[in-house]
Amino acid sequence: MPQLKKILAVVIMVFIPISSFSHDNEKHSLKGMSKADKLDQCVEPTEKMQKHHFEYLYHQRENTVEKGIRTKNHSLANCIDCHVSHDEEGNAIPINDEGQFCQTCHVKTAVNIDCFSCHASIPRDSLSRTKSQVHSRNTHIESTAKNLVEYYNETNYER
């Protein structure tokens, strides 16, 4: 009987750590293609990213929200941009969908993340930006210039 207990203890001790880091040294193979698929390494060594990515994200979120630091390396927007998979037609698949990058590990390790109730789960430009990209650059410059000239005339301001 003590023998059996020992074996059980060993089994538990060996398997629990393994299952809590589900993808150790193992490549993700997901449906679709992402930019990350073509790269050798993430912004930090893979091992580090697997175990500490949330610490980087927490740190970055304080820096971004409170101090306005917008570096890309540890930003969630950049994670999504790089890791989101695209289907054959080139449409992005939400990164928290079943079988997608964020979801596979978090399901396996039973971690419930709440990022995507607020953050976009695919790269999504704001419509005003998309609209102004459609506007040809020339008309934009022309109208800006016209507005500025009017502005200077009206305010009698000369440089």
Binding site: S117, C118, H119, R124, D125, S126
Partner: peptide
């Protein structure tokens, strides 16, 4: 459908 530059939620 939130945009990337403006996260917002319930």
């Amino acid at each position: 459908e939130q945009v990337t530059s403006a996260p917002r939620g319930k």
